[in-house]
Amino acid sequence: MSPRFDAIGLVVSDMAASVAFYRRLGFTIPDGAEREPHVEIELPGGLRLLLDTEDTVRSFRPQWRAPSGEGRAALALRCEGPDEVDSVYGELVGAGYHGELKPWDAFWGQRYAVVLDPDGNGVDLFAPLEAG
């Protein structure tokens, strides 16, 4: 037997806010999901992003508490190019989301930025820098 990687799960404090954020990033999420306690989002390549409300998690783990301090996980989204990193970052920050790290040309060869989702999870935006 060999387990296979299938999904990434995030615990969210406000499902509607999280659904709105991930829809802005282009994730296809069914209508009405913002009112559900658990949402499964199909990702390219067969993986899934799972969103569960804090109450849902507490229903089977009553002692669960939301973590405090900096996040330990991030989702990384590849953009078509450096200009898209800038435009997506600007659109999200303009919509009121927290820009954690403004776009910059990273020494490892990517245009790179970080925006936080409504629960403080990092969403890295990146694209390879063009050769030249």
Score class of each variant (00 low, 15 high):
8 I>V: 15
7 A>P: 01
118 P>V: 01
1 M>P: 12
92 L>S: 06
54 E>N: 02
28 T>F: 10
54 E>L: 15
101 L>P: 03
56 T>K: 05
124 D>L: 11
35 R>V: 05
78 R>M: 14
75 L>D: 11
45 G>N: 03
88 V>D: 07
12 V>L: 11
66 A>S: 13
69 G>I: 13
62 P>I: 14
94 G>H: 04
115 V>T: 12
116 L>Y: 03
76 A>G: 08
125 L>Y: 02
82 P>H: 11
55 D>A: 14
43 L>E: 10
55 D>G: 10
65 R>C: 13
77 L>T: 05
73 A>S: 10
41 I>T: 11
24 R>C: 08
118 P>G: 05
23 R>M: 09
110 Q>R: 10
42 E>G: 14
60 F>P: 02
110 Q>A: 14
86 D>E: 15
90 G>I: 09
106 A>M: 09
120 G>T: 04
64 W>T: 03
67 P>Q: 15
79 C>P: 05
51 L>H: 08
114 V>C: 13
27 F>D: 08
100 E>W: 07
94 G>S: 03
50 L>N: 09
29 I>R: 04
130 E>G: 08
48 R>H: 11
89 Y>R: 03
128 P>V: 13
87 S>K: 15
69 G>N: 09
17 A>S: 13
21 F>V: 05
87 S>A: 15
123 V>W: 06
81 G>H: 07
77 L>H: 06
68 S>R: 14
96 G>I: 07
58 R>S: 01
17 A>E: 14
55 D>Q: 11
92 L>W: 06
1 M>A: 05
37 P>S: 11
73 A>N: 03
77 L>Y: 04
8 I>M: 06
126 F>K: 05
72 R>A: 12
61 R>W: 14
29 I>F: 03
26 G>V: 00
101 L>E: 07
5 F>P: 01
6 D>P: 06
89 Y>S: 02
